[in-house]
Design a protein around this nucleic acid. Structure first.
Lengths: 215, 215, 215, 215
DNA sequence: GATGAATGAGCATTCATTCAT
DNA sequence: AATGAATGAATGCTCATTCAT
């Protein structure tokens, strides 16, 4: 009954780290449950149980179910995209390699981790959390598109690319990442999709497209 | 949304068409509500109100909330994709034109109609309705990929295309359609995306990629 | 769909006999359903279906579910008890034989027919239909006890019986009938009770008791 | 009925006794309502109100309305019958006195307590709860009949009784108890029945029957 | 007279939230 | 700080009753 994960202390004040740790435990549990059930169907009972605390304790850390969900998403959206982009741009390598680097990073750091699940959660629920959509756009999407544009612009300036397609629609670069995320969320039991292969082929194709001679 | 208050008749037997019409009204209302709220948060009260009937009436047409949802999806998935594909393949036009034709069809018939909403609904909810995912895959996805493969294969055979990328990953052709659907579902208030332009540029880019010389 | 039991006549007036017949059909169906489910759990849908009419038709014959139930019970309580009693008393036979005759009649005409089911229905539901209880008491119980008392009084007067026990508590004569009804309603699947044997032994025992010498 | 408003405590863990007490309060309230209305017509709102708790609280103690009902019956059926029987058989008294003892016990401990109400509830509802019927038969009926048979057998062996009627049909001993229960449930407003007198006379009569000379 | 589609009040059950301990 | 029993509004679903045809 008493889950003794973290030494139960009915006692006194919490150090900031303790509070931080507990918050993280709750968020971890919440992520599991929200991923499995979706926002509405997720039960706080379940979250509390998995975190090894009483249901009431949740309310010491989050004001409501909605707040828990939003805090969770926010905490997960730390966007390392910009960092990768900067790293790419800092190197003296062809723009082609930068784009490939970005996609490889997506393979490893998005499709290969829980980030894909978070993305799916956002895609599924953000419709009902407009602020969250805005937040995600600001923190992730706009930064991502900026990076892509920077790379493509450089590629065009350097004469590597003949097309500015990705400057106008940087979404085209990451579209297959989305497909990979959604496909494996919906159809993995019916027909698996080799997302690594997908992105490799995509890279080849798009690079050819960007470089290509006459259309 | 638009309650067309079809003269309330407690009375006589319904002709099949009347029943059909009423069913459709209910499904229309249901689509609105499911789209706005998601499956769990959707209230049958709301569906009934928008359809201009009493709550109990819903149960004369659908056995349960879940049945309503599934019937809704099924009714909307009549997949005309195959038909377009056949039409394309039947013509004596370059494979390139076929692919462009497909994307133009998507612009008009998916992104330009409620089909995009259905897709979004499926993306959001199919995780909790595995059968629905399978059904959608069977009725829509697998047919769509088959059509794409047929076109690409012909293009390669005729020497139009040098790459079989889309034969291996036909998902790459429709990935931007997905992006368009999701983007406008999530970020339309923040940054609109010109999906028509997106698909046009995508078409150009991918065609160049498929035809392109050395990668 | 169209049950053609009784020539469907959407047309005009009903003769009294037709109305009578239809009423009886509805009551028959109602009895079945009330017996199977009890008053509350009985569904008028079911009654209508079994009677081969539409649900609305029920309301042409009975004002409400409650009225249907009460009419049903009333129609079933035609009490032949008094008649049997009169017949017994009219004969010039020992009081003992009269009592045995009464119990034999109960074996055949109560335990051997649907009357036992009706009794069980009344026992189960009359708590919530006080008028019905009063009605049943007046029509059946009080007549039954009167008959028993008349017989016993005669037996005592004639010197056949030394005890007036049944005059004070005529219920004692029919108690085993009740037991038989209830037992087979509740425990027949677990342990069957030979109600005929029960009543035979009861007759012997009670006669001996009524006649017996010093207790 | 009597809301004893046990100081509302949203707080701390309940001791087993507290839980036990609360459970009992709920069961008491439930018994009242089920008796007044029957299973189907009983409203959990009403049960909760009478117990002085919120409706949701019921579900902390019972999984469903059906579970509440079954737990209620089970909790009330603790059968002390066997115990009385053993006590009787242990004494060195005539079998006649044992039977009288049994009936006196029934007067006091069944007809004089809520046990009579439970019996009535079972009689009314067990038709739709077959398991309950089986349970009641196993826990109460079969034990009761065993006790009666043991007493009668001894009486016959000792030469007290000349009839084995009750060995064949022990139900005959308790039949008037049933009559008493049902009568007062249905007709008490119309004609009261002196159940004590009923059972006294029954005792005399049946003893005479069991002892009596030639029938 | 008969129909049966429509109604809507009513109920069992769930679950986010509160708060005394 | 933590607990978890208690709450009660909210919701899916049922079914007796009505009434236009």
């Amino acid at each position: 009954m008493q889950v003794t994960k973290t030494a139960r202390k009915p006692g006194r004040a919490l150090t900031p780290e303790e509070r931080q740790t507990k918050t993280q435990q709750l968020l971890d549990a919440a992520l599991d449950v929200f991923l499995e059930r979706g926002f509405e169907a997720a039960r706080l009972d379940e979250v509390a149980k998995r975190a090894g605390v009483a249901k009431g304790t949740l309310y010491l850390y989050f004001a409501s179910k909605e707040a828990l969900f939003e805090d969770l998403i926010r905490s997960l959206i730390a966007s390392p995209i910009q960092e990768v982009g900067q790293r790419m741009l800092a190197q003296d390598i062809p723009a082609e390699m930068m784009l490939r680097g970005l996609l490889n990073w997506a393979k490893k750091e998005v499709l290969g981790t829980r980030r894909k699940d978070i993305a799916r959660l956002i895609i599924s629920e953000a419709g009902r959390f407009p602020e969250l959509g805005a937040f995600y756009h600001r923190e992730v999407i706009s930064r991502g598109t900026a990076v892509i544009r920077a790379i493509v612009t450089r590629g065009v300036e350097r004469g590597e690319f003949t097309s500015d397609a990705l400057d106008r629609f940087p979404q085209l670069l990451i579209a297959p990442v989305l497909v990979g995320i959604i496909w494996n969320g919906l159809f993995s039991h019916v027909e698996t999709l080799d997302t690594d292969g997908l992105l490799d082929v995509h890279a080849d194709l798009i690079i050819r497209g960007l470089k290509g001679g006459a259309a």
